[in-house]
């Protein structure tokens, strides 16, 4: 390779990957609870949070066609957050007309860190929610109940086993199988995302 070719190769354009487009309905279903939770985490009431979900949807649609919905890319996640954060701030301002003290708009240096946590938190909840929905269709009711009572609620395994007519071992297995399945499901979704 000549030096020129060498230089060029390193500068060669890589076109952005091909995105699989999803319907907006899917978006709503998938990300509505996430945006809602984020808005609630930022201190909005449920009704206002619902509005924020609507507004986020609308502004994403307005951004079409320049915007490509591509859940498999981390950039979407950042974009979604930006749009959501904007809608939430707008809603907060709307709810609280500036009064004397609040005329002085100040950003807390810690605010964004905090906000990050809210967002990261909601993002995890979002993943678990989706994975749990899959698990609900994949596992039998007894396993799910055992998981809920023993793993989620922290009931003693003996009691759980007795009341559900299972062996203690089956209770343990229900927990580890469901947890493993959740982890796999989340990993699969995340892999495309980051």
């Amino acid at each position: 390779m000549t030096p020129i070719e060498r230089t060029r190769a390193s500068l060669l354009a890589r076109l952005s990957g091909d995105a699989d487009r999803a319907t907006w309905l899917e978006f709503f279903d998938a990300y509505g609870p996430l945006v809602h939770g984020y808005a609630r985490g930022r201190g909005l009431q449920p009704v206002d949070a619902d509005d924020v979900v609507q507004e986020v949807l609308l502004s994403l649609m307005r951004a079409m066609p320049g915007f490509r919905y591509d859940p498999a890319r981390g950039r979407f996640r950042g974009y979604l957050r930006t749009v959501a954060a904007r809608a939430i701030s707008a809603r907060i301002r709307q709810n609280r007309p500036a009064a004397a003290l609040q005329d002085v708009e100040l950003a807390d240096p810690a605010l964004s860190t905090d906000d990050d946590d809210v967002w990261e938190d909601e993002w995890r909840l979002h993943h678990v929610r989706r994975a749990m929905r899959v698990v609900e269709s994949e596992f039998g009711e007894r396993d799910r109940l055992a998981f809920t009572r023993y793993a989620v609620n922290g009931d003693p395994p003996e009691q759980t086993a007795r009341e559900l007519g299972m062996s203690i071992d089956q209770v343990y297995q229900a927990k580890s199988r469901i947890l493993r399945r959740l982890s796999t499901l989340i990993e699969a979704r995340r892999r495309g995302e980051d």
Binding site: V128, M132, E136, A151, V152, L179, S183, E187
Partner: peptide
């Protein structure tokens, strides 16, 4: 931190919260 879903305790903590919100 990004492997939270592989840590059973971490994952369970979030499952508990999802469970609490009764999502779905």
């Amino acid at each position: 931190e990004s492997r939270w879903h592989e840590d059973p305790d971490e994952l369970l903590g979030i499952v508990r919260r999802v469970h609490a919100e009764g999502a779905g």
